[in-house]
Design a protein around this nucleic acid. Structure first.
Length: 883
RNA sequence: GGGCGCUUAGCUCAGUCGGUUAGAGCAUUUGCCUUACACGCAAAGUGUCGGGGGUUCGAGUCCCUCAGCGCCCACCA
């Protein structure tokens, strides 16, 4: 091993390409049921099989990998179950689009069977993209257990669940108002509709009374639905219209007469107070229609065009129809006025088009009974949410839960296991015996397989060792946007089918936005490609940066340049190790310091080891509480500031000193580095593995993945560690002051300086004298004299000085000193001190404080005041000397 | 309309149980290629903790209130 074989800068690409296949080859990601051993498991939120890696996935999977790697190092039997989701509508439209563009075939001309074959082909060829990309990130999923929601086993689980719920009476088929997506030509669940503020018109139309006595004015945003109107409603208490109740109006553009009815639904404050009732196309009108026994007229085709009930408008697209209706009504003088309004309009989450609410025959799941244990689990804290506030969102939804529309009029998905023959309906896992049965054409909502994921992935409904050992899983990491779609439903499914919760903790990640706070989206072009970022900065850099910048429980503002944090940090760590290697081979004490070394620790060593031991504890605590970001900050600060800036610099003279000093310094460096690498490994897996080998902490064939996670080591530290650390910090404060003096007085860095320190007391003086080599090195000084006396120059020249906890540091200067600047600096110190003294005195003279504050706080305040006064005296002395 | 969150340095954010003089990174200024690192080192400046009120010996932190911003749910006449 020689010092030249580590490049000056860390080069991630080769290191990542080397280690990932190695880890996988050695089976380090694999988890196996080991009865008696502590289990730790996570199921991945399965990305869409059509998906490509986004920054959202990066965050999500990095956090999961941190947890997984951490627990693996804790010696638990760990398994991270990966896989992908068949994503019904998304995949179907994706493949449909590809077929149309590349081959000019429509899925309908292809037919159901052929089309599904093509989707499978497409899935085989392109479906693994996101899984390959996840490997680049370093995720340690158990790839041997990769599953797909349409795998045979998972499809069995879906059928089982459907049949069980049907037999329990929780699944039913019925004609109800549903959300209809004209693009997908399928029903959607309520959760798949997103409402957007949209500019629209509020048209006021005249509906003539059939008795010729005038007209009513109804206001609507959807003129084209008027062909489905079967009444006009007014509020029974509305004086303006009471006399019209029971009469009829002529529905314009048709030859129909419809009644004027009284119903509370009509709001006198809204519009004109008269509402057209379209029971087949509006949820409220549907209720009104039921109350008044109105006719339900569906006026639309599956694709959103108008049907034969619309007379000459039949076949027109809904928007075209709207235009023509308005024009024709205008021509007939039936338009009273047109207002501009902004209102919320529902769009299909996937298709991006305006949805229709319409009456349709669909399959539903009754949810209220399923919700009960799931609500209870979160209420009692058996399942915990982080951040906790998401429980409110959860409870609100769960306590107002609606039946779930699970049927979809598409082809790609789990076909509903129901068969029809004439009026008979058969529901079962296997098709019915006998002739004449045909299976339900509809497939199930994608989430109907996702909600079973935590146990279907482990082989349910078979009774498997995996379920016994790994179920319930421990933690779930996912975005808050799918709390209803997925999290809530998994909890319900867990209790219903396994009789137990699916996971104990749910960590909701931040949502990633761009630098301006906008959501990342393809159309805005502000969606960075994680693979390009990995190429540029390295996977570890991306992982670390995104955790480092993720604010707790809030959205992340991400920009690629922020990956410099992680890249620079990786480089810093790399060079710290490179420096260490230049000093010679690894010592035998990296795993545990010898008693001899521990007994002769220098104050600098005591400080860094104390900090390290504490950091190990607080990083572990932070991870337990899912405070990833504070763990990352802690490690970053420890490595950069504590270890590199101070400790390495302070130990340099010892490395060039006696053999005994050098060996001790190396032992401590190695011990600290081996702890740091393991502490950091869950966050930056590649570089830590590489360095552990570069440093020979590990032999060939070993991996840091299986090395024990560090534990605090207070037993190594001396009894007076705290005091020694305080002295050392005070020493560093003097160094900073000395450097300040040098810079502000223009002493070039190339020149070795001379300093004098007037120590604050015997204890400080002894400590500083004892630490002279480190002081000289840190100050880049030739000489530092230490005494209890202030500095006096033989030739009468003066010396600027700065006041610190441990004493006053002087930088004697031959020749001219900028006394004005010196004086100004001292005067500022004086002013600050007086301000703080006033505040301290004020506090101590407050009778309330003295009588009510805890004694320790009062003592601290007294000590602070006397320290401040002492410092002020010294500043005043210096000022006197100057004038 | 209901709920949740945010507002701290130029920017992005920490700030634990209410307790010394409110911190970090980036950016800025100054000096440095000092033999691990210029993806670096050293030093410096920067605050009405959104406004107002209250509780308390003591409030960035707890309570009330107002304002601005964001998100979720409900609401398509």
């Amino acid at each position: 091993m020689n010092q030249n074989d580590m490049p000056k800068a860390y080069e991630p690409a080769d290191v990542e390409a080397k280690w990932y296949p190695e880890w996988e080859k050695r089976g380090l990601f694999h988890g196996e049921p080991v009865p008696g051993k502590k289990a730790y498991s996570i199921v991945i939120p399965p990305p869409n099989v059509t998906g490509i890696l986004t920054m959202g996935h990066v965050l999500n999977n990095t956090l999961q990998d941190i947890l997984i790697r951490w627990h693996r190092m804790l010696g638990e039997e760990v398994c991270w179950f990966p896989g992908t989701d068949h994503a019904g509508i998304a995949t179907e439209s994706k493949v449909d689009k590809v077929l149309r563009e590349k081959e000019g075939i429509d899925r309908r001309t292809l037919g159901r069977e052929k089309f599904i074959e093509r989707v499978w082909e497409w899935k085989k060829q392109y479906g693994g993209t996101i899984i390959r990309q996840l490997r680049k990130l370093g995720t340690s999923c158990d790839w041997e257990r990769e599953r797909f929601t349409m795998d045979a086993g998972l499809s069995d689980a879906v059928k089982q669940v459907f049949v069980r719920l049907y037999e329990k009476g929780y699944i039913y088929r019925g004609t109800r108002m549903v959300n209809w997506c004209p693009a997908a030509q399928s029903a959607l669940s309520d959760e798949e509709v997103i409402y957007k503020e949209t500019k629209g018109k509020f048209w006021h139309f005249r509906y003539p009374l059939t008795d010729g006595s005038g007209y009513l004015v109804v206001a609507t945003t959807r003129p084209e639905t008027m062909f489905g109107d079967t009444a006009v409603a007014v509020n029974p208490r509305d004086e303006r219209y009471r006399h019209l109740i029971g009469k009829t109006v002529h529905l314009p553009l048709t030859d129909r007469e419809i009644p004027i009815i009284a119903d509370e639904h009509a709001d006198p404050e809204k519009g004109t107070g008269c509402v057209k009732i379209t029971p087949a196309h509006d949820p409220n009108d549907y209720q009104v229609g039921k109350r008044h026994n109105l006719e339900f007229i569906n006026v639309m085709n599956r694709d959103g065009s108008m049907n034969s009930r619309c007379g000459k408008y039949a076949g027109l697209d809904r928007y075209e129809c709207r235009k023509r209706c308005v024009a024709d009504l205008e021509a007939q003088g039936l338009v009273e006025k047109i207002e501009d309004i902004v209102h919320n309009v529902g769009f299909s989450e996937r298709g991006g088009v305006e949805i229709e609410t319409l009456l349709s025959n669909q399959w539903f799941v009754k949810m209220d009974e399923l919700a009960k244990p799931a609500i209870e689990a979160v209420k009692t804290g058996k399942i915990k949410f982080y951040p906790e506030r998401w429980t409110k969102t959860y409870f609100h939804w769960m306590e107002n839960i609606q039946d779930w529309c699970i049927s979809r009029q598409i082809w790609w998905g789990h076909r509903i296991p129901a068969w029809y023959r004439d009026e008979e309906v058969y529901v079962g896992v296997e098709p019915p015996k006998g002739e004449g049965w045909h299976q339900e054409e509809d497939v199930l909502d994608t989430w109907f397989s996702s909600w079973l994921w935590p146990f279907s992935i482990m082989g349910w409904p078979e009774d498997t060792a995996e379920q016994k050992f790994f179920y319930p899983t421990n933690d779930l990491v996912t975005g808050p946007d799918i709390i209803f779609f997925w999290v809530a439903r998994m909890i319900m499914a867990g209790y219903e089918f396994k009789g137990d919760l699916p996971f104990r903790n749910v960590y909701f990640t931040s949502i990633i936005r761009d630098e301006l706070g906008r959501k990342l989206s393809k159309s805005l072009g502000n969606s960075p490609d994680p693979l390009a970022v990995i190429d540029q900065y390295g996977a570890d850099a991306l992982r670390f940066s995104i955790v480092y910048i993720a604010p707790v429980g809030m959205d992340i503002r991400y920009a690629n340049e922020k990956c410099e944090i992680g890249r620079n940090f990786a480089n810093k760590l790399w060079n710290a190790c490179r420096f260490r290697r230049m000093q010679g081979p690894v010592s035998g004490e990296f795993k545990a310091l010898s008693a001899k070394t521990a007994a002769s620790l220098t104050p600098d060593e005591v400080l860094i080891l104390s900090r390290l031991s504490e950091a190990v504890g607080s990083v572990s605590r932070a991870l337990t509480e899912f405070r990833f970001h504070s763990a990352a900050h802690e490690i970053y600060d420890l490595v950069w500031s504590g270890f590199c800036d101070w400790f390495i610099e302070a130990c340099k003279p010892r490395l060039y000193g006696s053999a005994e000093e050098k060996n001790q310094a190396l032992a401590v460096l190695d011990f600290a580095l081996w702890n740091l690498l393991r502490l950091l490994h869950p966050f930056m897996p590649f570089i830590t593995e590489e360095l552990a080998h570069q440093m020979s902490f590990l032999a060939d064939g070993e991996s840091i993945m299986k090395a024990p996670f560090p534990v605090p080591f207070p037993e190594i530290l001396p009894a007076d560690a705290e005091q020694l650390s305080a002295f050392t910090n005070a020493k560093y404060e003097l160094v900073t002051a000395g450097r300040n003096l040098r810079l502000s007085n223009g002493v070039p860095p190339s020149r070795k300086a001379h300093y004098h320190i007037k120590a604050s007391g015997e204890a400080y003086a002894a400590h500083l004298k004892n630490q002279l080599p480190a002081l000289l090195s840190l100050l880049n000084a030739e000489e530092v004299s230490i005494s209890l006396e202030e500095y006096k120059a033989d030739d009468g020249s003066s010396a600027p000085s700065l006041l610190c906890e441990a004493g006053v540091i002087y930088l004697p200067l031959k020749g001219l000193v900028d006394t004005a600047a010196e004086k100004a600096k001292l005067e500022k110190q004086e002013a600050d001190l007086r301000k703080w003294i006033r505040s301290a005195e004020g506090k101590l003279s407050n009778p309330g404080f003295v009588s009510k504050a805890p004694p320790a706080v009062i003592e601290a305040a007294k000590k602070q005041l006397s320290d401040l006064q002492e410092k002020l005296d010294r500043v005043l002395e210096a000022l006197k000397r100057l004038s």
